[in-house]
């Protein structure tokens, strides 16, 4: 503190010393930036989130090839906010008799008898400050694929789209739905 002013204490005299200092600062900043990027970067690239599920299930086979309606299994989509994961008793409607020799079906039958559904992981997640109701959208006959993409082509459940507010608002504007903030946020 000379002359009562704030003065840097690190004062290399030579040009080489100054160059080393500058280089050091740049290196430190670079490490901080890239380290932060790799630390916070998601494991899955955007739109490719496919968490490990407890049992094997293929949307391609059931919804695609066999053409089962989405709401046959996701029964709460037209009744509540959440579409819901079907219980294994729903699987047993068919798999009591159908393809009972497949190992994946045997695993589900065993789990049904043990009453152990396992912990399924949500693929589509919304932040806490968003309120979304499947009921409101299904009752307006909006196609599931409008938001969830081509689910009937997926062998492993994958997030087809990362939901951002722009996606919601664009559709709300096109259809003349409410664009009031409090329609979704509280």
């Amino acid at each position: 503190m000379e002359n009562g002013r704030w003065v840097s204490r690190i004062k290399p005299r030579s040009a080489i010393g100054r160059a080393f200092l500058k280089g050091g600062i740049l290196l430190f900043a670079g490490l901080l930036f890239f380290g932060g990027y790799f630390y916070y970067a998601p494991i899955f690239p955007p739109g490719k989130y496919a968490p490990q599920q407890p049992y094997e299930y293929s949307h391609k086979l059931h919804a695609g090839d066999l053409g089962i309606n989405c709401q046959y299994c996701h029964i709460y989509a037209k009744k509540a906010e959440f579409a819901g994961v079907p219980p294994f008793s729903k699987c047993m409607n068919c798999h009591v008799n159908l393809s009972i020799n497949k190992p994946s079906v045997k695993a589900i039958q065993k789990a049904y008898e043990e009453k152990n559904m396992g912990r399924w992981t949500r693929v589509y997640n919304l932040p806490d400050h968003v309120w979304f109701s499947h009921k409101r959208h299904v009752s307006k006959n909006i196609d599931c694929a409008a938001c969830h993409g081509p689910v009937e082509t997926l062998v492993v459940s994958t997030e087809n789209r990362v939901f951002r507010m722009g996606f919601c608002v664009r559709c709300h504007q096109e259809r003349g739905a409410s664009t009031d903030c409090w329609a979704c946020h509280t």
Partner: peptide, 28 residues
């Protein structure tokens, strides 16, 4: 139905917006 507020955010009474929304939902 109500978000948990983060640090550094102002909050206030909403006239129970979540209940108004539920009421409108049932009416619709």
């Amino acid at each position: 139905d109500v978000s948990v507020r983060e640090v550094g955010v102002m909050e206030k009474c909403t006239f129970c917006m979540q209940r108004i929304r539920r009421g409108k939902d049932a009416a619709k």
